[in-house]
Design a protein around this nucleic acid. Sequence first.
DNA 1: TTATATTTTTAGACAAAGCTAAAAATTAAT
DNA 2: ATTAATTTTTAGCTTTGTCTAAAAATATAA
Lengths: 222, 222
Amino acid sequence: MNYSTSEEDYIKAIYRLQENQSTVGTNELAAELKTKPASITDMLKKLKAKKLLHYQPYRGFRLNEEGTKVALTIIRRHRLWEYFLSEKLKFGWNEVHDIAEELEHVGSHTLIERLDKYLGFPRFDPHGDPIPDPAGKLQVVDQIKLTELPLDVKAKVSGVTDQSANMLELLKHRHIAIGTSIVVKKKFDFDQSVEIKTDRNSPFTISEQAAKNIYVQYEPRS
Amino acid sequence: MNYSTSEEDYIKAIYRLQENQSTVGTNELAAELKTKPASITDMLKKLKAKKLLHYQPYRGFRLNEEGTKVALTIIRRHRLWEYFLSEKLKFGWNEVHDIAEELEHVGSHTLIERLDKYLGFPRFDPHGDPIPDPAGKLQVVDQIKLTELPLDVKAKVSGVTDQSANMLELLKHRHIAIGTSIVVKKKFDFDQSVEIKTDRNSPFTISEQAAKNIYVQYEPRS
DNA sequence: TTATATTTTTAGACAAAGCTAAAAATTAAT
DNA sequence: ATTAATTTTTAGCTTTGTCTAAAAATATAA
Ligand SMILES: [Mn+2]
Ligand SMILES: [Mn+2]
Ligand SMILES: [Mn+2]
Ligand SMILES: [Mn+2]
């Protein structure tokens, strides 16, 4: 089957939202895609007709097996292009997303497989997110939130959940990137903020809000 | 200004057609784009409203300066991607066109400039066609048709006009590619067919139809 | 358990891009 | 100079994907 750019973006957004919740709502998806709820209902009918999701009017929706597979191939394309842009064209990790958002819709199967090979079969994109394999299997990563890391244990930054411009700016300012070594020196119970130490900086404090969006792994990367 | 995928394909097709003739017709463009004449008329009105071409109903049309500039930036994107696909991803020169036809519509300006740099500022695409520079200037190439090459003068294949699958198959079979050294041994006045000799083959004959689509240059490449 | 608020769907419109069939203009042929 | 053939445009319909405003369903609160 072949899907339109719009359909692909909807599928991808539903996948993203249903990772946390068990079922996705209309308003929520409308906000995610910056469209209006009415448009969501329309598209849901089409995607249901194409048997990509379970959907009971008023009851919310969820991708089925086929829909999930489609989502993962789009995510694969997206993340491979992000890797290309960052690794080969030297874009900053905060610049790659928007361009990949367009490139991901170029359909050719061979294109993606050759790109993958050319890039050396990378397993993580520049944001630390795993790249699904050709069959749509996702690497399981043993990463934990920075807020869950025990005191004085050295770990490496492996991913960032919130990839908004604001968050990326904060990380850039603190010289935190994928691979940065990091140790939590203190947690303040008052506001859950954490004091951390990286190789390149003297200790500093970041908010809980920031910390819970940063993922780390114990030393050896899987 | 920003143009839709359709608009870009129309502009590019008009550019291609008006290279030979002074003015382009509706049926002609419809054939080129595999659409119906009525659709052409509709789109022409839009492009005229956007001031990209001269157009008098029933009288034909032609890109103006602005339209030509737009056409050349699309062609630039197309040919840079073709070069990438062929050079980096090892696609055959007969496979790159269709994929580039999609990639060319990804708009980011920086993307194209960085891609250009990454590729080492190539000046010709895999079919031997010149890549417009960032300002939209086209290399002038001193190439002539194989039919115009004098007898026994060594030249190099520099381009192919007809890039249909059939033509490319013929060239592949004869081991003719961009850069191949070639000498015309004889021209048959009866049907204008030419006998040629390449490095890798004993002499053989090709039709006028094929020969006039092959362009060659005298030894030093500009 | 009614009343109120929120969420979701429906109804009706619109712009982009395409098509078919019919009308109009232009060109070519008697 | 008519008539015939060809080219081009117009009129009217269709499909996607979007929107606003109103109606319906569900959830929350008094
Ligand atoms: Mn996208
Ligand atoms: Mn990413
Ligand atoms: Mn195209
Ligand atoms: Mn080409």
